[in-house]
Design a protein around this nucleic acid. Structure first.
Length: 824
RNA sequence: GCCGCGGUGGUGGAAUGGUAUACACGCAGGACUUAAAAUCCUGUGAUCGCACAGAUCGUGAGAGUUCGACUCUCUCCCGCGGCACCA
């Protein structure tokens, strides 16, 4: 009997499958009703396939194989997310060109991917986002958005390194300093390209019906919070002795308790004060200017270190609170953020914690206008006394509002303000427009041209792609790398034909990944970003597997693009994926995240060498639920290997078998196992599916006795092999062909039929007395529905009898499930 | 602070309101072996008990609903993840 030595045949089958083309996906034969688009987030071209990739891809692969054996045309494509900063960093550090680095990594990763033994199917057509064939359509999409006013040039506060003259991403700041030159980073308003995702805010919100698709609660709630739609009112306050008006957004206009206004340092009015456009005392002007400069220098780091201690300066100006008919002082403070609401806050310190802190710090009046449940009517001195919107309470000190419920008082205030023309109800959103320009090299060039005469001019569609030049300086000072290639940079203006310059910025890589699954369907199509007809056949995506870290970024952008394509008439769907499944993380054996510095990295290649691919795949499915995060265990993988060894052995025995004696109980167990495995795979619960197969093997082995060891028919044995096939594709193929002599792949076989009505001859019914288990009853399954008989037998049961003797009771029988006696 | 998700044996983890701890690991004992590894068998929630009698307790804590609660409701504690001076 041969030993289980997976290394002997895994490579053989990999090659054979390629030869037999069993994983080819043929678009032509597609029946749209039988299509199954299984998508995994496209991997980044980091260089090596780590155990996380294996974990991420194995479960979707099992699902793909299962679906295909059930008659679906499974589209399970792959591609690479190939643009981005790490490639550029590698270039700077190691003097390798980003393109060469990336393409080399892709080659290596593709090789490694094949060892996992997935049925990923369009390897030759894998979409690579850094190739012009792909990013050409990024540029096309950008131009379409520009045409519709969805892409615009604007200013935003960003991390800025004055020395390198570039915007820095948060992760490129180390202790408040630039990662490259070590100089302090400041906040600066920088001109950049934005996508108007806020225009889609309402459509991106998830409704109670989950927008008709099956996405996790965590994603839906997370995205809705991120979009942060809030109803409130924009209140106008005239500034005394000027023509200026300050608009404050508030969700709770407690105007009879409003005693000041606070502006964000970057508020327009502050600029006007500094510029002298609004007259204030020169000493005050200087104070405001100093405060503004200090605020501008503050980085994220400073703000964090400062904590929540309020700072601020008085502008010397007053505004008129027309509802309460009094004047309020106007202050500037960096606790108010320019882009939140209107960048101006009406201070109601009795009913807002931040306003309270500010008022305390600068000794501003605090007025109570709401009495809460504690009936405290005293002055508000302590934070515990603050009553905020949402708490129950009655209005006081508020003239015509007195006596109303808090919420009603707010609504009346808003009605009044709107009637007077002093305010307008409005929705505020937390979501901001998406900044997409990066002053980097390794990305899609922005297809725009700057002409001294015509200004910003879009590149003509026929000139796409605007190819990324190979020759640039990656470490320039004061300008983006692309601007160092003069030949590329200088162009003729499409409008006037005069000298002009290209946009030297590149697109955020999240732009690349916001639509790639459509490109997968027609990777070489050149009449548009994708072939509408093919896309219609294959989309929406049936399941989208990926990481939880993409809740607020990638998946939100992807939904935004889908809606944009919908508006262009390119796709029918408003949601691109019917179901989203998010994986967890495989931690190192020590329970920490794997990292080279901790020395706890598990290399999948080593494990394949030790146990074979099937064992690694099965272990990754078995170790924990797909969504969970847990540590790698060398012990547990050995256990999984033991299981496969036993499977191997029992089938080797089968090979040498002679007479067959059927075991009905075992057949029934097999039927139940097939049913359980089918349901569990569908539910993405691979760990319990495997447990069920282990249980079956245990039963199979223990039903074998020296004189009666061939207990399964060939059909039944093959059925077990088939349900194992999606998990252990190599071993099952080896057995399928060598033990059973089949000559077409097990992976092309049909999933075993489930006989729904599996009836055992005997059934065990637990018997409870007062809800406590006191015994069990083993009865013929024909008696299952005969309640009287069941109770009669149960009462006679030795173990139950003593609890019931001499007592009055009633019986509750849940048919086939349980019998409970309740003592009266 | 807000939002989301969790808390079950020594460990990873199972349980449509119906026999809690499936499956696996680990551990203990045994078989095989000169010995070890591998493999196989048996046992394994806690406490009491000679017991493969039996009993009691047991799913973070406490209450509630129910014939019956890991599961549903409320209050609280702890852990993880996300957001956060959001007006």
């Amino acid at each position: 009997m041969s030993k289980y030595q997976p290394q002997e045949f895994e490579k053989k089958w990999r090659e054979e499958w390629k030869k037999e083309k069993i994983y080819d996906f043929r678009f032509k034969t597609l029946d749209p009703k039988k299509k199954f688009y299984n998508l995994v987030e496209l991997p980044y071209t980091s260089g090596d396939l780590h155990i996380g990739h294996w974990f991420t891809f194995t479960t979707p692969d099992v699902l793909s194989r299962f679906k295909r054996m059930n008659g679906y045309d499974v589209f399970f494509p792959i591609g690479y997310d190939a643009f981005g900063l790490p490639a550029e960093n590698a270039a700077i550090k190691r003097a390798i060109h980003p393109k060469d680095w990336t393409m080399k990594n892709i080659e290596n990763m593709t090789k490694q991917f094949h060892t996992i033994g997935t049925m990923l199917n369009n390897w030759d057509d894998a979409v690579i986002t850094c190739l012009p064939e792909y990013y050409r359509w990024n540029q096309w999409i950008f131009l379409k958005m520009y045409e519709r006013g969805l892409a615009y040039r604007g200013k935003a506060l960003s991390n800025w390194c004055p020395s390198c003259q570039t915007v820095l991403a948060n992760e490129n700041i180390e202790n408040g300093k630039c990662w490259r030159c070590g100089n302090p980073v400041v906040q600066k308003e920088v001109e950049q390209w934005f996508l108007k995702i806020t225009k889609y805010a309402d459509r991106l919100l998830w409704d109670k019906n989950s927008n008709g698709v099956d996405w996790p609660m965590s994603v839906r709630v997370g995205q809705n919070n991120w979009i942060g739609k809030k109803g409130g009112i924009n209140m106008d306050y005239p500034v005394k002795n000027s023509n200026e008006v300050i608009t404050c957004f508030t969700t709770a206009p407690v105007n009879f308790g409003m005693t000041f206004i606070v502006l964000a340092p970057e508020h327009q009015l502050v600029k006007k004060i500094i510029k002298g456009e609004i007259k204030v005392e020169s000493k005050t002007r200087k104070t405001v200017e100093d405060y503004f400069k200090k605020a501008q220098k503050k980085s994220e780091m400073d703000r964090l270190m400062e904590g929540k201690i309020k700072t601020g300066v008085f502008t010397g100006l007053y505004a008129i609170n027309r509802i309460a008919r009094w004047d309020v002082p106007i202050w500037v403070s960096d606790f108010v953020i320019g882009h939140v609401g209107t960048g101006a806050v009406q201070g109601c310190p009795g009913h807002d914690y931040k306003d309270f802190e500010f008022a305390k710090k600068f000794d501003l009046p605090i007025i109570r206008v709401v009495v809460g449940q504690d009936a405290d009517t005293s002055e508000i001195n302590k934070p515990e006394q603050i009553i905020i919107k949402g708490m129950p309470g009655k209005m006081v000190n508020s003239k015509f509002l007195n006596g109303l419920d808090f919420e009603e008082g707010l609504q009346k205030t808003m009605d009044y303000a709107e009637k007077k023309g002093w305010g307008k109800r409005i929705n505020s959103y937390h979501l901001r427009d998406w900044s997409i320009s990066r002053q980097r090299y390794w990305g899609s060039p922005v297809p725009m041209i700057y002409c001294p005469k015509d200004g910003v001019v879009p590149a003509p569609e026929k000139d796409l792609p605007i190819e990324l030049p190979y020759e640039v300086d990656f470490t320039p000072k004061g300008k983006p790398p692309l601007a160092t290639n003069e030949k590329w940079l200088n162009v003729k203006c499409p409008k006037c034909g005069g000298g002009a310059k290209r946009d030297s910025e590149t697109l955020d890589t999240f732009f690349d990944s916001a639509w790639y699954w459509y490109r997968y369907v027609s990777p070489h199509y050149d009449g548009g970003p994708f072939d509408k007809i093919e896309v219609k056949k294959l989309t929406p995506v049936d399941v989208y597997f990926g990481g939880a870290e993409h809740t607020l970024g990638h998946t939100l952008y992807a939904r935004f693009f889908t809606k944009f394509f919908h508006d262009l008439g390119l796709v029918d769907d408003e949601e691109f994926a019917l179901k989203r499944v998010q994986h967890g993380v495989v931690l190192g054996p020590d329970g920490n995240r794997m990292s080279k510095s901790k020395g706890n990295v598990i290399n999948p290649d080593d494990k394949v060498k030790e146990y074979g691919t099937d064992t690694v795949r099965m272990y990754l499915c078995f170790m924990m639920p797909y969504e969970a995060t847990s540590a790698w265990s060398d012990k547990t993988i050995a256990g999984v290997h033991r299981f496969l060894n036993r499977v191997w052995k029992i089938f080797q025995l089968y090979k040498d078998s002679a007479a067959f004696i059927e075991n009905k109980q075992l057949i029934s167990k097999l039927q139940k196992t097939i049913l359980k495995v089918s349901q569990d795979i569908e539910k993405i619960k691979m760990n319990t599916a495997i447990a069920a197969m282990m249980e079956f093997l245990n039963a199979w082995e223990s039903s074998i006795t020296p004189d009666r060891w061939n207990v399964l028919s060939e059909e039944a044995a093959k059925d077990f092999l088939k349900i194992l096939a999606p998990f252990a594709p190599y071993m099952t193929e080896e057995i399928w062909r060598n033990v059973f002599g089949e000559n077409t792949s097990i992976h092309l076989s049909k999933w075993p039929k489930i006989i729904e009505t599996v009836t055992d001859e005997t059934v065990t019914i637990p018997i409870q007395v007062n809800g406590k288990l006191r015994g069990t009853l083993i009865v013929n399954s024909r008696l299952l529905f005969d309640e009287g008989k069941i109770i009669e037998l149960a009462v006679k049961n030795e173990r139950v009898k003593k609890y019931l003797s001499g007592k009055k009771f009633k019986a509750i029988y849940v048919k086939g499930k349980i019998l409970n006696f309740v003592l009266l």
